[in-house]
Design a protein around this nucleic acid. Sequence first.
DNA 1: CTTACCATGTAAGGCGTTACATGATTCA
DNA 2: TGAATCATGTAACGCCTTACATGGTAAG
Lengths: 182, 182
Amino acid sequence: MAIEKKIDCVILGLLSHEDLTGYEIKKRMDTSLKYFWGASYGSIYPALGDLVERGLANKRDGTENKRNKIIYSITEAGRNYLKEWLQNPVEKDELRYETLLKLFFGSEGGAVQAMAHINAFQEKIERELPYLTSAANTLRNYIDTDDAHKYYLLTVEFGIKTYRAYLEWCEEAKAILGEENK
Amino acid sequence: MAIEKKIDCVILGLLSHEDLTGYEIKKRMDTSLKYFWGASYGSIYPALGDLVERGLANKRDGTENKRNKIIYSITEAGRNYLKEWLQNPVEKDELRYETLLKLFFGSEGGAVQAMAHINAFQEKIERELPYLTSAANTLRNYIDTDDAHKYYLLTVEFGIKTYRAYLEWCEEAKAILGEENK
DNA sequence: CTTACCATGTAAGGCGTTACATGATTCA
DNA sequence: TGAATCATGTAACGCCTTACATGGTAAG
């Protein structure tokens, strides 16, 4: 009943679906998980070594024509560990919106500056939203081939819904700020 | 053009509106800012000392009938520092949704368990949303008394919009998961 | 031939939480 | 009188990012 380290759980979660290298794990984080989680190599590789040491994962050599490769897979113990974490209630969801922070103190910088932050935020969201909608479409097509797809879809839908709410807010926020500039 | 530490900026931002004690700063974080930022005493008090040392804030004794109290105020240098940070583009908005993480790996734990996580999330949001809407109403009433209120309102509206999107998603997510249970 | 990508890892250092330690006051 | 709130702070420790270090391969 130890307090599970999140990085371990993320990695085990990914390994529960397929065997992966550290590099591939990082890629998954930068694509599928990037909308709600992140990690760097500096935490992934040490965590992988740790997982093997604790018997929660196995490593094997997967070198292909001289390209160095270590493939990790989940063990029975690892799967149990993952399941236990999954069972426990969520401890906390953490947000750190620097954009909101700058806006909260916006009166110090003025409306023009605040507007610029909102625009930058809006552009970022508009740039990323298409990836989410196309991911959702792909997942919907394969929803019956693997149970896991359904769960992926859930998280993607979460992203889509919140991103759309963000965009609505951007328009409203700019309207509120715009009024005083007349 | 140093890379500003966020905790410094938050504190200076709060001090830019009014003089505060460390305790009061923590309270602001736990109420007005809690929807998009957080900090503990263990980071606030050391940061305050640091700010004073660097000439960005002043401290004075504010002891009232034996109750120990140190009141901090922002200096001119502090205000400039804050303004510079406010000017710079946002570096990153960070989310760490443990709920989404557990859902992403939900196929390992099954629909019932996933549903429980969604329900817990939903209840938390439903519990907090009323505070946001009432804060928004209050702010709208005082919108003309202080320019800063407008910016506070912006962040509260962000919370309201995203929270409503969360709730919509909860219903949809449960519907998707519910189908397979028939 | 050079850019981008594949691939693994370490070291230093920053940042921040948790837990602890202490004590006054207010209110029921 | 006990609980909640006001009030300040430190120490240990954990976790993670950034930057560095290295080298192979594929594609244009």
